[in-house]
């Protein structure tokens, strides 16, 4: 028991260290972006995100990349900021602005994916767990512990079950949204087969949303609003990567 406790303490401590390192890299990044050194700022924010992804670092990374002319990377960064904090006003504003400038659409979300954007992805999974065990506990514990049966317990079980069922669809949306990606390079070739010599179907603009259907070797089979085809890895970035 003591060992488990120590392990938990260590895990919490390492999380705290990551947070501190990420903050240490966030500050010089902000300074570099103010000084107009956007490539350095982008590198600082990238390192900060590698330590611990945060919505603020991703918003600033997006601004630095946008100033460097990398619209696709910027849009991906702001989408990731919104992934962590769906209510981040800066990310929402920047995405609207960038899509207007770059003339690209936002990804088309299914209803359960739209529902999953109301809360951060991890909140949904905890909510689902809490709802499930609340329902199970409300049904099982009174019997085991020989509590007197009451309407309140059943109401609590029904409430927990409702939360679980609703968050289940949202969790499905979270998992489904991990296949949404954005073109990060310019004129990305959409090919008919997963080979470098295959026929070109279309060229994709930076920031264009795609949905990953499958992968093979160094290629992803994706669907865009206009067509489906294969693109090389590294030319498309995904929200959770």
């Amino acid at each position: 028991m003591r060992r488990i406790f120590l392990l938990l303490i260590l895990m919490m401590d390492s999380g705290g260290q990551d947070r501190a390192l990420a903050e240490d890299l966030f500050t010089p990044g902000t300074g570099a972006i103010r000084a107009g050194d956007f490539p350095t700022a982008a590198a600082d924010f990238q390192r900060s995100i590698q330590q611990r992804p945060s919505s603020g670092a991703l918003v600033n990374l997006g601004i630095a990349e946008w100033q460097c002319g990398h619209a696709g990377v910027a849009i991906l960064a702001w989408e990731q900021a919104q992934w962590i904090d769906p209510s981040d006003a800066r990310a929402i504003q920047n995405l609207k602005f960038a899509r207007t400038v770059a003339q690209v659409d936002a990804p088309e979300l299914r209803w359960f994916e739209s529902a999953s954007t109301w809360l951060p992805p991890n909140a949904w999974v905890w909510l689902a767990g809490a709802g499930l065990w609340l329902a199970v506990g409300s049904l099982v514990l009174p019997r085991v512990l020989r509590w007197k049966k009451s309407g309140g317990q059943q109401t609590l079980a029904a409430f927990g079950l409702c939360i679980f069922l609703f968050s289940l669809t949202a969790n499905l949306g979270v998992v489904s949204r991990t296949d949404i990606g954005f073109v990060v390079r310019k004129n990305v070739a959409l090919r008919m087969t997963p080979t470098s010599g295959s026929e070109l179907l279309s060229a994709l603009s930076p920031g264009e949303p795609v949905r990953r259907l499958k992968s093979r070797g160094n290629y992803f089979f994706i669907r865009t609003p206009m067509a489906t085809g294969w693109v090389e890895r590294g030319q498309v970035g995904f929200i959770n990567e």
Partner: peptide
């Protein structure tokens, strides 16, 4: 006018990884 936002002054909300717990 539509414009880019101001810089974020603090890291804000964070996650241990962008990969969701579900996966």
């Amino acid at each position: 006018p539509l414009k880019l936002s101001a810089l974020a002054e603090a890291p804000g909300k964070s996650m241990a990884s962008l990969k969701p717990l579900q996966k």
